[in-house]
């Protein structure tokens, strides 16, 4: 199983700067092995963009980080905590309870390709729901938090709109605000602009760019090569369930060493 260990500055598990520590993640659906031993470390403040052909496992890997998918084997830690599993008194790995998983997920923002806004709630209510129900924040305070986040993504004047009354780009910005309202330590983006019309992609990317500039730790699955070049600290090239190449955007985009990376880039650039 050739998998690239990341050349990130930190690679020990107990170090404080490590937000994501994934080691030898394997995942199969039925008889199809989708992840064949993926390892990746992400340090605090780092932006890692996952690229690669569809079916290469990048979305599945992203979903393993917040336990939407349960790896068949391997270690996944976020902020030093095992995700979805815990060690019992004998030091054996056992499954965590639904509540424990939920508590861990509350600190990991996830932005979906298709937004998944709650259609029966206004933009403001979408953003307020997590703080109220999960963090048990008083309504008035949650409202302030939600308005702040919506203002941050440029939607202060749309807080009372329902998702059906918003454009795709606006919906995705509400979705980002909904995640940010939980004050996450890590943001995961699953092809956040793939379902958008070309003319509104820019407004979503600019919100993500602002987050990068603020030092938010992010893992982004994206096909936007130009954007990846601009915001990524590192780019990981996935192919056939493995990271075949990882490095700075300059390394991966300008001087790819792997034939599969070159072949992929020749198609998308």
């Amino acid at each position: 199983m050739a998998s690239f260990s990341s050349p990130s500055p930190a690679s020990s598990v107990d170090d404080t700067g490590l937000v994501v520590h994934a080691s030898e993640i394997h995942k199969s659906f039925a008889s199809q092995e989708v992840l064949k031993g993926v390892s990746l470390d992400v340090v605090r403040g780092e932006v890692v963009v996952l690229i690669g052909p569809s079916g290469s496992g990048k979305t599945t890997f992203l979903r393993c980080i917040n336990h939407f998918e349960v790896p068949n084997s391997g270690v996944m830690q976020v902020n030093g905590h095992l995700i979805g599993t815990k060690l019992d008194r004998q030091g054996k790995r056992v499954e965590a309870s639904a509540r424990e998983v939920a508590t861990q997920r509350a600190e990991i923002g996830f932005v979906f390709q298709h937004f998944n806004l709650f259609p029966n709630r206004t933009a403001l209510e979408n953003v307020m729901l997590g703080p109220i129900k999960v963090q048990k924040m008083p309504k008035e305070k949650a409202r302030t938090v939600a308005i702040d986040q919506l203002t941050k993504v440029g939607l202060a004047n749309k807080i009372d709109r329902y998702p059906a009354q918003l454009s795709g780009g606006q919906k995705q910005r509400v979705a980002i605000a909904r995640s940010l309202a939980m004050n996450p330590a890590l943001m995961l983006f699953d092809e956040p602009t793939s379902a958008l019309d070309p003319e509104v992609i820019g407004e979503v990317l600019s919100v993500i760019r602002d987050l990068a500039n603020e030092g938010m730790t992010m893992v982004i699955v994206s096909h936007e090569i130009g954007f990846a070049r601009e915001v990524a600290d590192r780019v990981a090239m996935f192919d056939d369930g493995q990271i075949v190449e990882i490095g700075t955007p300059q390394q991966v985009f300008d001087n790819p060493t792997q034939a599969r990376t070159k072949a992929f880039l020749s198609k998308v650039l």
Binding site: F68, R99, R105, A106, E107, G109, F112, N116, F118, M182
Partner: peptide, 15 residues
């Protein structure tokens, strides 16, 4: 996706 969105903001499956 609605169920997943709810989980992503830290809700339990019951919530």
């Amino acid at each position: 996706g609605q169920h997943e969105a709810a989980l992503s903001i830290g809700m339990t499956p019951a919530q």
